[in-house]
Simulated assay, not measured.
Amino acid sequence: GVIVAIGLIVWAVFHFLLAKPEEETDDAYVAGDVIAITARDPGQITAIHADNTQTVKAGQPLLDLDAATADVNLAAAEADLAKAVRATRADFSQVNASGASVVQARASLSAAVADYGRRQGAAAQGAISGEELAHAADAVKVARANLNLAISQQAQSRSAVQGTSTSNNPAVLAAIAAYRRAAIVRSHMHIAAPIDGVVAQRTVQIGQQVAPGTPLMAVVPLNRVWIDANFRETQLKDLRIGQPATVTSDTYGGDVVYHGKVIGVGAGSGNAFALLPPQNASGNWIKIVQRVPVRIALDVRELQRSPLRVGLSVDVTVDTANVSGALLGEPATQAYQGRATDGNDPAVEAKIRQIIAANR
Rank of each mutant, 00 (worst) to 15 (best):
V257Y: 03
H259G: 05
K261P: 03
K261A: 13
V262P: 00
I263E: 12
G264W: 07
G264H: 10
G264A: 13
V265H: 02
V265Q: 07
G266F: 03
G266T: 09
G266E: 07
A267P: 04
G268S: 15
G268T: 01
G268W: 02
S269A: 15
S269L: 05
S269T: 15
G270P: 02
G270F: 08
N271M: 13
A272C: 02
A272H: 00
A272T: 10
F273E: 04
A274I: 02
L275I: 11
L275H: 10
L275Y: 08
L276Q: 13
P277D: 11
P277Q: 11
P278C: 12
P278A: 14
Q279W: 03
Q279S: 03
Q279E: 07
N280T: 13
A281L: 04
S282G: 03
N284R: 10
N284A: 13
I288N: 05
V289H: 00
Q290Y: 02
Q290N: 11
Q290A: 14
R291D: 07
R291G: 01
V292A: 08
P293V: 05
P293D: 02
V294H: 02
V294Q: 00
V294M: 05
R295H: 14
R295D: 02
I296T: 00
A297Y: 00
L298V: 06
L298G: 04
D299L: 09
D299H: 09
R301F: 04
R301S: 15
E302N: 11
E302V: 12
L303Y: 11
Q304M: 11
Q304Y: 07
Q304D: 14
Q304V: 01
Q304E: 14
R305T: 03
S306M: 10
S306C: 09
S306R: 12
S306E: 11
P307N: 11
P307S: 14
L308V: 10
R309F: 00
R309N: 10
V310L: 04
G311F: 05
L312G: 01
